[in-house]
Write a protein that binds this DNA or RNA. Structure first.
Lengths: 201, 201
DNA sequence: GCGGAAGCGGAATTCGACTTCCACTTCAAA
DNA sequence: TTTGAAGTGGAAGTCGAATTCCGCTTCCGC
């Protein structure tokens, strides 16, 4: 995650005729505000779901709506940015899991960890299930990692053969919905790990 | 489910001084329209989720929005009515399950059947998870049946001891969310039944 | 068949969000 | 310190969807 993110609208700039010069970095206070907006948005969405109003987010961040719109041209753009960050985080977690020696253990850890993270951002995650489903595709990077994790677990007999990546995605969506209702993520994670394994005779 | 349902706004009526006379029954065509609206609404919500517009529902039912609002004072009221019907249906299904001799089998059947019904009304069910969570409480009758079903299954060793009715509710919410993404209800139901059982050693 | 209450359609209204706009303020390069 | 580009706040504008309103139509008891 880049700390010095740029505003969403790339301003073609050319101070002094330098061919394709890199855009001047954001002004210090502006960058600070952008960060505050992002934090406020995450918190607000986590608390109240997607129905929070832009003005609430702005107030929470201590800025005017204008500032908010300077950084994100649209409410959806803001949501997408948050979704993007969540995805990036998922990739990191998946990588950690992939570095574990035992595939079954790695898979279980990934599921538990995801459930735990969801519990911390319940509203937020649930919103993703709702809103971003169509808008912002799961990045290839994450699909790839998930595929690996799943494949390895499958080979190790920890996951039924008939569960595809998109099934798994759907399942995680269900998980977030369940967690949004009760925060018993440990129970749910356990159930998932057990249920994903072929039923024992 | 009463076929001759009354409009949501009870009109205090008193034709001829009959003490507490029952309200005159709906006019024939009106009752027919009410039914059509309800059907159209169910179909529309199932297809497109909660974001369908009142006018779309009205057009689908072949009536004007006015008629729609005559029967349901609010969009939420319409949603609640549908939710109510779904709940009633659940009670019936639960009763069928309770009449089965083997508790484990009964529980599994109930879960599978619910998943199947959800798949048929994906958008609708998902919407319930979203909207009705707060507005329209699960009726006591359904809570009671669910509790029975769960208790019997628990005694028979088919369900882990640490799953409460509200946990189970949350889980079904998750199930509907997952099904709304992919219609693989059989897989999901299987996973649930397996996962709800204490992990075998 | 008549009368009038009940019901109907759908244009017009209301309402509440998102988004735009611009006069004003703040930053930072020279 | 000066200067002007970048950034800011928040009132006003826009827009889409829910809801109301009312003149017209349809039923139904007499």
């Amino acid at each position: 995650m880049t700390t010095t993110a740029q505003p969403s609208q790339p301003a073609a700039r050319s101070l002094r005729p330098v061919l394709a010069g890199a855009p001047r970095p954001m002004r210090g206070d502006a960058a600070r505000n952008r960060a505050r907006v992002l934090d406020a948005a995450r918190a607000a969405f986590a608390e109240d779901g997607a129905e929070v109003q832009m003005e609430q987010i702005a107030r929470r961040a201590g800025v005017g709506v204008g500032t908010l719109y300077r950084n994100f041209p649209t409410k959806q753009a803001l949501i997408n940015e948050l979704a993007q960050r969540w995805m990036d985080e998922r990739v990191e977690i998946a990588d950690q899991a992939l570095s574990m020696p035992d595939p079954a253990e790695a898979f279980g850890w990934f599921v538990r960890r995801t459930a735990e993270d969801m519990a911390g951002d319940a509203g937020l995650c649930h919103m993703f299930g709702e809103h971003s489903a169509g808008n912002c595709e799961m990045p290839d990077l994450l699909v790839e990692r998930t595929e690996m994790l799943l494949a390895r677990a499958r080979e190790a007999g920890a996951v039924r053969a008939d569960v595809s990546v998109s099934d798994f995605q759907a399942i995680l969506g269900g998980l977030s919905a369940a967690i949004a209702q009760t925060e018993k993520w440990e129970l749910f994670a356990e159930m998932l790990v057990t249920g994903l394994r072929a039923p024992c005779p």
